[in-house]
């Protein structure tokens, strides 16, 4: 089985990788999209003052 890896996915904000598996005839057998990234804003915003959160979460995506 042949494997094609597209790493990284480009021209977007963030990190992504695509793994494509081909059968012997060259047809796509299966395909996996992976996001090899996590920062954890959901957690580290906890405990921060509410008025500070807009400045923090604007760093989720600066694009």
């Amino acid at each position: 089985m042949k494997r094609i890896t597209i790493d990284p996915i480009t021209r977007l904000e963030g990190h992504g990788r695509i793994e494509i598996f081909l059968d012997d005839a060259g047809a796509v057998q299966n395909c996996y999209f992976q996001i090899p990234e996590l920062r954890g804003f959901e957690k580290f915003c906890e405990g921060r003052p509410a008025e500070e959160v807009p400045q923090i979460v604007s760093r989720i995506c600066g694009v």
Binding site: L38, R39, G40, E42, K43, F44, C45, E46, G47, R48, I56
Partner: peptide, 15 residues
């Protein structure tokens, strides 16, 4: 880097 105020397992649990 604010994540260093939290523990890895707690970040995973939340997310």
């Amino acid at each position: 880097g604010l994540a260093n105020f939290k523990r890895r397992e707690d970040i995973f649990e939340r997310v």
